[in-house]
Design a protein around this nucleic acid. Structure first.
Length: 384
DNA sequence: AACTATTTCAACCGCACGACA
DNA sequence: GTGTCGTGCGGTTGAAATAGT
C-alpha cells in the first residue's frame, strides 16, 4: 500500500540520509533510496528478466550499469544536444551513441515529457482544466489523446494532474451531486464557476484511494453510483487493444463491461481524432468496430454515418477519394454503409479545419445538433 | 524547531501494437 | 506464419516537497 510505503519508508529514508550511508546514483552521486535499490534488484525480478529473455523477448536494455532515477543536468544536455543533431527516434541505440548510461526508453520519456522545446511549463490553466475534464468524459483515461488536444502538455502531466486534482474533485462533486440532484448544477460543467474562484476544502481521501479510483474501478471515476450516466465513458475497458479490433464472442461482451459504453468511448476517441486530425493524429483501429446503428441511435447524426467519418482519411485532403478507395479495397470487415447513405455529405467538412466552418455555415444542416454538440463546439471560437 | 502525514510528479514498468525480415 | 525491433501507452512507484501538528 502506498500509505505504508510513503510513511514508513520515508521515515527510514530520512534516517538513512541522516546516517549518511554512502550510496551513489548518477553522475552527481545522488544517493539512491536503499529500499528502492533493494526492490529493483530482487532475485525474482532478475529471474523474470531471464525468463522473458529465454522466451525470445529481450528486455528493452540491459539494466546493469545504467543510471536510474532522476536525470542530471549534464545528462539532459547530452540528450538534448544529441537529439538536436540527429533527431528523434532510434531510442534503443541512442544512449550508446550519445554516450548516456540510460535505457533508451528512459531517454525517450525524458525527451518527450521534459526536454522537448515545445513543452509548456507552469500550472494548468482553468481553461485547460475544463478541457481535460470534458475530454476525459469523452475519452476516459486516454491520456495521450487528451494530451493531443492540449498543446505543450504531455500525457504524463495530464495523467498526474487528473490523479492528483481532477479525479478527486470529480468524485467528490459526484457525491455532492448525488445528494442534491434537484439543483441541476453540474460543478464540473463548462458553465460552472471555476473551483479556483471558490476555494473549498476537498475532503481528502487517502492517496492510495485516489489511485484506486482510476485503476481498480472499471468505471469512470466520477460514477460510483448504481445509475451510471449512459453517456459516460468506461476507462480500462476500451484500452486500444486487439480485443476491440476483433469482436469478442457474444458472451465475452456481456461478461463484465457494458459494450455500449465501450463502443461509445471508442467512437468518441475516433471522432476526437478524425474531426481535427493533427499531424501526429492517427485514426484508432477500433473505429472499425463501432456498430453503425449504435452510433446513429445514440448520436442522431442523420445523413452522416459516423462510421464514414471515423474511417475518413485523417489527412482530410480528399476524404471522398479515401472513402471510395476504402470501400473498393474491401480490405477489412469494416462497417461502411451503402455509399448512397452518405450522398450529399460535404466531404470537405470532414477535414480538420473545415468542420468548424461547416457547422457555422450550415447551422447543423449537415451536422445535426446532437452530433455537433458531441463534437463539442464551445460556443465561441474554440473547438475541441 | 522537529517530526509526521500528505501531495506532487518524474521516472519506471509491463504490455501491446505495427513494421519488417 | 513467426519472431524481433522500435515505439507508444497507461498504470504504478517512490523521492522530494509541502502542509500540518
Amino acid at each position: 500500500m502506498c500509505v505504508y510505503a510513503c510513511g514508513s519508508v520515508t521515515k527510514r529514508w530520512l534516517l538513512y540520509k541522516a546516517l549518511s550511508i554512502p550510496g551513489q546514483r548518477g553522475e552527481e552521486g545522488i544517493a539512491e533510496h536503499p529500499e528502492s535499490k533493494l526492490r529493483r534488484t530482487t532475485a525474482t525480478e532478475k529471474e523474470r528478466e531471464r525468463e522473458v529473455a529465454e522466451m525470445g523477448r529481450s528486455p528493452c536494455c540491459s539494466k546493469e550499469g545504467l543510471n536510474r532515477g532522476a536525470w542530471t543536468a549534464q545528462e539532459d544536455k547530452i540528450l538534448t544536444d544529441y537529439i538536436k543533431a540527429h533527431g528523434e527516434g532510434r531510442w534503443r541505440n541512442l544512449p550508446k551513441k550519445a554516450g548516456l548510461k540510460r535505457c533508451g526508453k528512459s531517454c525517450r520519456l525524458r525527451w518527450l515529457n521534459y526536454l522537448r522545446p515545445d513543452i509548456k511549463r507552469g500550472n494548468i490553466s482553468p481553461d485547460e482544466e475544463e478541457l481535460i475534464i470534458r475530454l476525459h468524459r469523452l475519452l476516459g483515461n486516454r491520456w495521450s489523446l487528451i494530451a493531443g488536444r492540449l498543446p505543450g502538455r504531455t500525457d504524463n502531466e495530464i495523467k498526474n494532474y487528473w490523479n492528483t486534482n481532477l479525479g478527486r474533485r470529480v468524485q467528490s462533486n459526484h457525491q455532492t451531486n448525488s445528494h442534491s440532484r434537484d439543483d441541476h448544477v453540474d460543478p464540473l460543467s463548462p458553465n460552472h464557476q471555476h473551483d479556483d474562484d471558490q476555494p473549498h476544502k476537498v475532503e481528502s481521501p487517502k492517496y492510495s484511494e485516489t489511485s484506486k479510483v482510476s485503476t481498480d474501478d472499471n468505471s469512470v471515476s466520477e460514477s460510483p453510483s448504481s445509475e451510471p450516466d449512459p453517456r459516460l465513458v468506461k476507462t480500462d475497458a476500451f484500452k486500444c487493444s486487439k480485443s476491440l479490433i476483433d469482436p469478442p464472442p457474444e458472451q465475452e461482451l456481456h461478461r463484465n463491461e457494458d459494450p455500449i459504453n465501450t463502443d461509445l468511448a471508442a467512437a468518441a476517441a475516433a471522432v476526437a481524432v478524425a474531426v481535427d486530425p493533427t499531424p501526429t493524429g492517427v485514426l484508432p483501429p477500433f473505429a472499425w468496430n463501432i456498430p453503425a446503428d449504435l452510433l446513429m441511435d445514440d448520436f442522431e447524426i442523420g445523413e452522416i454515418c459516423l462510421s464514414e467519418l471515423l474511417n475518413s482519411n485523417s489527412s482530410g485532403v480528399n476524404n471522398q477519394d479515401q472513402f471510395n478507395s476504402n470501400n473498393s479495397n474491401t480490405s477489412g470487415d469494416h462497417l461502411f454503409a451503402d455509399q448512397g447513405q452518405v450522398q450529399g455529405l460535404d466531404w470537405a467538412a470532414l477535414s480538420s479545419d473545415c468542420v468548424q466552418d461547416n457547422y457555422q455555415a450550415n447551422a447543423g444542416s449537415n451536422f445535426h445538433q446532437p452530433f455537433a454538440s458531441f463534437l463539442d463546439y464551445n460556443g465561441g471560437d474554440q473547438w475541441l
